[in-house]
Design a protein around this nucleic acid. Sequence first.
DNA 1: CTGAAAGCGCTTACAG
DNA 2: CTGAAAGCGCTTACAG
Lengths: 314, 314
Amino acid sequence: MGCTGSDPKARSLRRGTPTTIGLVYPSRLSYAFTDPMAALFVQGAAEEVERYGYGLLLVGGPADDLDPAAPRGAPVQRAPVDGFILQSFADDDPLFRAALARRLPTVVADDPAASELPCVAIDDAGAAQNALEYLLALGHRHIGVLSLELTLDASGGLAGPERRSRARYRAARERLAGYGRALEAAGLAWDRDALVFESLDNTVAEGKRGAALLWAQRPRPSALLAMSDQLAFGALAFAAEAELAVPGELSVVGFDDVPSAARSAPAHQPTIRKGREAGRLLLAALRGEPAPGCLWLPTELIVRGSSGPAPAPC
Amino acid sequence: MGCTGSDPKARSLRRGTPTTIGLVYPSRLSYAFTDPMAALFVQGAAEEVERYGYGLLLVGGPADDLDPAAPRGAPVQRAPVDGFILQSFADDDPLFRAALARRLPTVVADDPAASELPCVAIDDAGAAQNALEYLLALGHRHIGVLSLELTLDASGGLAGPERRSRARYRAARERLAGYGRALEAAGLAWDRDALVFESLDNTVAEGKRGAALLWAQRPRPSALLAMSDQLAFGALAFAAEAELAVPGELSVVGFDDVPSAARSAPAHQPTIRKGREAGRLLLAALRGEPAPGCLWLPTELIVRGSSGPAPAPC
DNA sequence: CTGAAAGCGCTTACAG
DNA sequence: CTGAAAGCGCTTACAG
């Protein structure tokens, strides 16, 4: 009779049945959703998880403007969840270790450092290599890379050999390795033929800044290879402001295939499916099924209008 | 020492301190995030809530492909939360009533039917009236409206007087009222000078379909007024495919100002702020502070490149 | 079939 | 200062 109903917390405690899955982001929550990829991943995870009646609790890193009255410790330590999905962490992120310390069933997407946990990933190195080989086949010989952060404290500028070798995010590290393989196979070399801009965060603004910085280098890059669609959109914005023809004067390649990527040529990353499979693996773990190791999802290079042949040298 | 740590569920039960806020969507969760507005709202709510150490649990409507082993009842009845933020519900949505039946502190965004709950809203009627008056001032006399759903079971086609009068979503109802006021003030009339397409859902595909349908009417509309940016993007996609000059042959106006709305002329709806204020009101309610009634956020018409003067009659 | 008791894992207040 | 007991709101298994 429209009454209060029973307290789900108490019920869950008594019955011991799992109800809630924690989706953990490395940064504070309010930053997580500035990235359209985050929404796609949630969509996939939600799809799988809600079929079985689970809820999805969003868990972020500690907020920097925490209220004094708020409970101590990272949200990940206090989250009332029955399992974790961890996403895009750096190898040495203390938050990642704090989550593992809860010893709950856990699935990792974009696995930092090989762990024994079930995980979901793409062949980042292979996809990156493909994308660069595609540009090389179009005749591009001066490449600019718009990179995601390489370490927890990103540098926000050109990243030389030393900095590149210290990448702590698996996805960025693997992609750099893939680009490197493609360069080497073509007889090209880092720093001489390809420069890397390391962004401070995955935003359009950083993509724009990086594109401007790379464009100012000599020899000038004829193509920009972005590790995310956000960064690629930034590069397109830079090109538009500088009145550069795309792809006539500058080719731009993205990576993720977010819904608004009508103008880029991204290596299609199946982010919704990544979320879905992460949810599926976690539900299997909650049922006590043995961990199936890592699930590798296929990628695909989708060619669109923002990339084309290198301009003829004048 | 890296040990298991204590069970947050039990702690929360014993201490009685609130930890988790439920963000409730009218549809199934995996649909919620196909709308970029959803991500903006989460961003705002997360920003406010995480400062005080609360987690955000995403709660959707019942999934249609529910697993037989899943617990019965809507997720909203089982969600282990201490308060609700309800968003964009139709007046008669049973899920809305089910959430209220939990008798938890609750805040409503885009309030369905005046309730006594704290709420956050914009002046939908005023913003809509502004947008249409702007088009009328540009000389447009034949208007097409791309409307959001009017009832729980949307019709997906032209909506005549009878259907328009039965709108059950507050935002859509108010916006129709605002358009009506602008029409009346200009001596124009619904159905003769302005047609309404009711979409089946808030997607680019529906916007495209509606734009095509409205464009096929006689007299042809010279401007399309969309109730969301998604629908406006669809109208732009239709114009691009039909090789119509925007705004030369067709003006397009959006509503939300999502991040990718570079080409529309939306009435700026402050969605992040809406999420933030909803979070703030709910935290106040959890502290036992008296409900402050409804908080009305300002809107602003931002004019961009997709709208211009009506083409001269030939 | 109905009703009182035990216990999920914790925290808090109180007795020793 | 330390340690045993009570109790958060439920559900389940057991006694009557």
